[in-house]
Design a protein around this nucleic acid. Structure first.
Length: 453
RNA sequence: GGCCCUAUCGUCUAAUGGUUAGGACAGAAGCUUUUCAAGCUUUAAAUCCGGGUUCGAUUCCCGGUAGGGUCACCA
């Protein structure tokens, strides 16, 4: 392979003209992975040649994204600070006759009367793409395209070619939407005497309507939105890596280090792939399961709303106990906030309020069974030794107490007395978390309710 | 419209000139079960169409169809 002996240098060049969106992550990731795998250099370049639309806040935004995702880069450049370099090339090209100053009739507001055009040699060019194979173009159709508005204002394609040359980029890994742009870049490379990098055009990322994922698409969110929804950076990376790439094995859950080890250009897909957020949810859940306890507690803690923290029995210790219950029921951490707002976790930190009728299991027609047994149930629980007051211990005691009585008639009321809601974890689990005193106290108030009726 | 690219379950994909075309997500059912969730098991679901080449094509070739990308003084 061409350049195989050279040190790998890749780059990712976002333009700060909007909030960096998820779709953009994939190219960044592939370039990062490839460079890291080959102990090469990964360059981040701010493509801010468009003075009108570039904004510092957008640059800060993608910088923050890179930080959040732990995608480290070795060098950082801003094209706006490299005007002198482009100017040098522009002057040389004009002197060489590969570019010329052209008089124009302005078509739009802001158009200039004089621009710099590339002198198109109108030839057939071809290149070998790692993903797509050999691609041929006749550049006649391109005409003498504009490469700069003036010596100080290069346009994207030109600046890119100069930078890729100056920065000794060996591999250009990007989406297939750039395939049609490649011939003009190659033409300019030839004009300035730059070598052709190796191209790998990954599949296009599509939205649900099979259209290219676009910044303007309201369904495609800026990256940090995913952060605030409680998606894990590793999950986002894992999921994005798999859009248009797979390791060729059946393993689907990868850490960033795993990805560095497994990535290969050869496994890149040709067909476009749809961004399927249901799969992202699953990947995220899998990564949540992988999280170390401390990290998990951190994430969960920050998803718990103030309202819950102000409850009488709130405590970090108890929160730690309900973690397994929580993660079983969520795909992302903001789901916890939602659960809290829906009143699904209050009862862990506060005795519930509810109507007595809810205590009665549907098969216990008029509540006869529970009215007769609740006293005994409480007694049974009181007798469980403190050291056996665990999920298993409680279950054993209660089940043997129930014997051949109808389980639902006892267990539903018990669970309801503890939780006060229709859907919750089982009563043994809740009881073990609440502790003996609180469990008994809640059951006693249930008993009181039952006998008032 | 010109040019370019693509085509396996709904989705992401694996595989091969000869396979029961595999996996995952989502779906359905069952188990478990007091409810919810989780888990486990099972299940349904695909090679775009038409020609070749070949003993044999999902795979190779051609055509069609469909989809997508790109054609800025944006990136």
């Amino acid at each position: 392979m061409k350049n195989a002996s050279l040190k790998v240098v890749t780059r990712f060049a976002p333009s700060p003209t909007g909030l960096f969106h998820v779709g953009g992550i994939r190219s960044a990731l592939y370039n990062f992975l490839f460079a890291r795998q080959h102990k090469g250099t990964f360059i981040l370049r701010c493509d801010d040649t468009d003075k009108e639309r570039s904004r510092k806040e957008y640059e800060n935004y993608f910088l923050e994204v890179f930080k959040w995702l732990s995608l480290s880069y070795d060098e950082y450049y801003r094209q706006s600070e490299r005007t002198e370099i482009y100017k040098k090339y522009l002057e040389k090209m004009i002197a060489d006759g590969t570019a010329y100053i052209s008089k124009e009739v302005p078509k739009e507001e802001g158009d200039k009367e004089e621009v710099i055009r590339f002198k198109n040699p109108n030839k057939k060019i071809s290149f070998d793409d790692v993903v797509l194979g050999r691609i041929e173009f006749d550049t006649k159709d391109l005409g003498d395209f504009i490469i700069a508005r003036d010596l100080e204002s290069p346009l994207y394609h030109f600046a890119t070619v100069v930078d890729d040359y100056e920065m000794k980029i060996t591999h250009v890994i990007r989406g297939q939407e750039h395939v049609s742009n490649t011939p003009r870049q190659i033409l300019m490379q030839e004009a300035i005497g730059a070598p052709q990098p190796i191209y790998a055009h990954a599949s296009i990322i599509l939205d649900k309507d099979r259209k290219k994922l676009s910044k303007r698409d309201p369904k495609v969110l800026p990256v940090l939105e995913y952060k605030s929804m409680g998606y894990l950076p590793e999950a986002i990376l894992n999921f994005m890596a798999f859009i248009g790439w797979n390791p060729g094995t059946e393993q689907e859950i990868f850490t960033l280090d795993n990805l560095i080890g497994s990535f290969s250009l050869e496994k890149l897909q040709k067909p476009g792939a749809i961004f399927n957020s249901e799969k992202l949810d699953w990947v995220n859940k899998e990564h949540i399961k992988l999280l170390p306890k401390v990290k998990l507690l951190e994430h969960i803690n920050s998803a718990i709303p103030e309202k819950i923290r102000n409850l009488p029995e709130w405590g970090e210790e108890r929160l730690a106990k309900i973690i397994p219950i929580l993660i079983e029921r969520i795909v992302k951490f903001s789901d916890i906030t939602q659960m809290a707002e829906a009143g699904e976790i209050d009862f862990f930190f506060q005795a519930p309020e509810y109507d007595a009728v809810n205590l009665i299991w549907k098969k216990d027609i008029d509540g006869g069974v529970i009215r007769a047994e609740i006293g005994n149930l409480i007694e049974t629980i009181e007798k469980i030794p403190e050291e056996s007051f665990t999920e298993a211990g409680i279950k054993e005691a209660i089940l043997s107490f129930i014997g051949d009585k109808d389980r639902g008639s006892i267990l539903w009321p018990m669970r309801y007395a503890l939780s006060g809601i229709d859907k919750s974890p089982d009563p043994f689990t809740i009881a073990s978390i609440l502790g003996k005193n609180e469990t008994v106290s809640r059951l006693k108030s249930a008993k009181k309710k039952l006998h008032l009726n």
